[in-house]
């Protein structure tokens, strides 16, 4: 889909290899595993926890022109939903082509109803979503 997925923790690439080989849950993993032992890249995205030296559960989507389109951070014990990540990625992909539209919360995929903000929509969002 024209995207590179990189997982990042403050472990080294050597620990990534060891973990990948050891943990059967990771058997099908195909994405790049990024090493950020200095925490520099985690800091860049505001997810570096100085108390622990670890990265919080942050997810970021960057367009091919380098713009940060999406930013989401969960605390340590809150898991992420991969379907929601894909929904956001697809929505960002769509909106990068149609900047004057909006993807409502229930938007799932190309072809679903979008919103075109304008004077005629003020107070009529319900009608626009239920056409």
């Amino acid at each position: 889909m024209g995207a590179t997925l990189v997982t990042v923790s403050t472990d080294t690439q050597f620990v990534h290899l060891a973990w990948k080989d050891h943990e059967k849950e990771l058997a099908d993993v195909k994405y790049l595993m990024g090493a950020d032992p200095t925490g520099e890249v985690s800091w860049l995205f505001g997810v570096y926890d100085e108390n622990s030296g670890l990265a919080l559960r942050g997810t970021f989507i960057i367009s091919p022109d380098g713009t940060l389109f999406n930013s989401e951070v969960n605390f340590y014990n809150m898991g992420r939903n991969i379907d929601e990540l894909m929904r956001k990625f697809k929505a960002n992909l769509y909106l990068s082509r149609k900047a004057n539209e909006g993807c409502p919360s229930k938007w799932k995929d190309e072809g679903d109803a979008t919103l075109k903000p304008g004077p005629e929509m003020v107070g009529k969002v319900h009608e626009a979503l239920n056409k």
């Binding site: 590179t4 997925l5 923790s9 620990v15 973990w19 050891h22 970021f60 960057i62």
Partner: peptide
């Protein structure tokens, strides 16, 4: 970016 690709970064606390 030069390859025309999107980037998705997925941070997490620690391996293992």
């Amino acid at each position: 970016m030069a390859a025309g690709k999107w980037t998705i970064l997925f941070f997490y606390p620690a391996d293992f």
